[in-house]
Design a protein around this nucleic acid. Structure first.
Lengths: 325, 325
DNA sequence: GCTCATTACTTAAGCGCATCAGTAACCTAC
DNA sequence: GTAGGTTACTGATGCGCTTAAGTAATGAGC
């Protein structure tokens, strides 16, 4: 344990390199319009290395007026591997532009997004949930130069996912659909959006709206739901997500029903387990990595450019056809 | 769209309330040893509300020397619902003490933990992965007053989980165990730790070490693995986690093997789908919420108190006995 | 040999806050 | 009636950095 060696400041670096703090700043920031000879640059960089110097973020952003920190708010549930990949890609792309990403789990009581934004003085706030206008306003007043929502309103994409599920099933000849609702109340809003998409596709094909049933991640409950759908002559069901779908598949087995023969099942999200289900689960996937990359591009562009051009609005959902449908 | 209304500063508030900026600071921070009459306090608070004022984090932490921001590093995979609950609880408990939590997904290229720490000037860094000494050192130099690792070394807990899995099976009379390794190379280290625990329990019971097989989340691969274990007279297998275990269960069904009769299976992590598996999956659970709360306590205590007392080191893993064993 | 640019820096100001060291007004005690 | 305490504030300073403005030294151009 070395003693709590005081953190080095740019003045320390300047002293060690025999220059002024200004020069240190110029070197470290590649300030345009400044000519620094190679030799000086080298000395500064060497001193930086020696002292393990890192500029203090707060001083930096106080002086510069922007922090180059991006705050991402993620919904506090359904953080699957997809979101993880998205965040990773987003962070990586931002880092290439010199921006730092931190995330905030939304929904927890305690600190609101604007609170967090103000606390870390983020330049940019992005959210995977839709943000209402009040929040967006509050974020601006909390110091965010830029506020991004992945979808201007999330409904379109969620609805689109539902529509894709239903269209897939309808294409396969199904005429009466079911919808498996998730248990968690917080999922309700998204579920409603997704189901609305299913209903739209049904209406468009001249079919009745889907028969929605509340479900739980429980084999007995799922078996009962499956039997009920059969009784109501439903031949295919859209599940809220892959977890629900997999549990349904298990419940069907318990009820001696097979997919897709007795009941076709389509999930959503394409979690890793989907392909290892029995039968492998058809589902809706989206390329969140691509979204991460292009969201980062949009952030960088509007930060350096002028007007915030609209972020990529689509997650590009598509059907992955496996054996369950 | 209101004009980009300049963010209010404490001077603005002071002017609006007819006091000095110092008084505003005293009111907002409840600075001990200052007597502020109710009337003045009210006026200040009212002005704060009117102007939507939030202190600028960077200025605050620059002046005060600490940011009250806690940075949590989470491993970039296996972010299941457990971690989510942990983070939520951690954030909530911290917020009650006036601290703000942000998270960083470790592992992505681009920005290292110390980089992020310096960028946002975090006072405290906590990590769910073990941090090596170099990193811890770097974090201190990057301005962290406090560095917490949930486990001083993660190995003990991971090993303990493996041990619990194995002991559970051994208690049930099994004498030859298998271990189902995960596919992803990044999971390898944790998997090795967990398996070491299994091996220890075997050794302790006078049994051979487990027969480890590489697996994939694929029914055919799992079926093959299951047959192989049977051939080698393995009667029970510990899976790296619940996902692997559930896929194994599916593979066994394909191979016309049943659990626990032909092969008992125990998972780890207790994901929601575990109880909806067929048969419901026995697994190792831990109370991450409790860990979140006590980690927050530890942070708050050592921030206000003196010496960083050791954080709660255990996640308190325990067996959840369901039908698969 | 003088001006004008260019190079390679430095000096100083100030970002928004916390905090220490006041200070003026009022009250009490003797 | 004045020393000493308390209440309710304010002024000034500085945290570590960026950045506008300045300067001394060198070279080019005529």
């Amino acid at each position: 344990m070395t003693p709590p060696a005081k953190r080095a400041t740019s003045a320390d670096v300047a002293r060690a390199a025999g220059v002024s703090a200004t020069t240190v700043s110029y070197v470290l920031n590649d300030t345009p319009g400044q000519s620094i000879p190679e030799e000086t640059r080298r000395r500064v960089l060497e001193a930086v290395r020696q002292l393990g110097y890192r500029p203090r973020g707060s001083a930096r952003s106080l002086a510069a007026g922007r922090s180059d920190v991006v705050l991402l708010s993620i919904p506090h549930l359904s953080i699957g591997p997809g979101i993880t990949r998205f965040v990773e890609q987003f962070a990586t792309s931002l880092a290439q532009a010199g921006l730092t990403l931190v995330t905030h789990l939304a929904g927890a009581p305690g600190r609101s997004l604007p609170d967090v934004c103000a606390a870390i003085d983020a330049s940019v706030v992005a959210s995977l949930d839709p943000l209402d206008d009040d929040t967006a306003q509050a974020l601006r007043r909390a110091g965010a130069d830029l506020v991004f929502t992945t979808e201007v309103e999330a409904h379109p994409t969620m609805r689109r996912m539902g529509r894709l599920q239903a269209e897939h099933l309808i294409d396969l000849g199904h005429r009466r659909l079911g919808y498996a609702m998730p248990e968690h109340p917080l999922l309700r809003r998204i579920a409603d959006d997704r189901m609305r998409g299913v209903a739209e596709a049904c209406a468009h094909a001249g079919l009745e709206p889907p028969l929605a049933l509340d479900t739980k991640l429980d084999t007995a409950v799922m078996a009962r739901a499956a039997r009920r759908w059969r009784r109501e002559s439903v031949t295919a069901v859209c599940a809220y997500n892959d977890e629900v779908a997999i549990a349904l598949l298990t419940g069907m087995r318990r009820a001696r029903l097979t997919a897709p023969g007795d009941l076709a099942v389509v999930g959503a999200d394409d979690i890793p387990l989907a392909q290892a289900a029995e039968p492998p689960l058809s589902t809706i996937a989206f390329d969140l990595e691509k979204v991460g990359r292009s969201l980062a591009d949009a952030v960088v562009a509007s930060l350096s450019g002028r007007k915030p051009r609209l972020p990529p609005t689509s997650m590009d959902p598509h059907v992955v056809h496996r054996a369950s449908t």
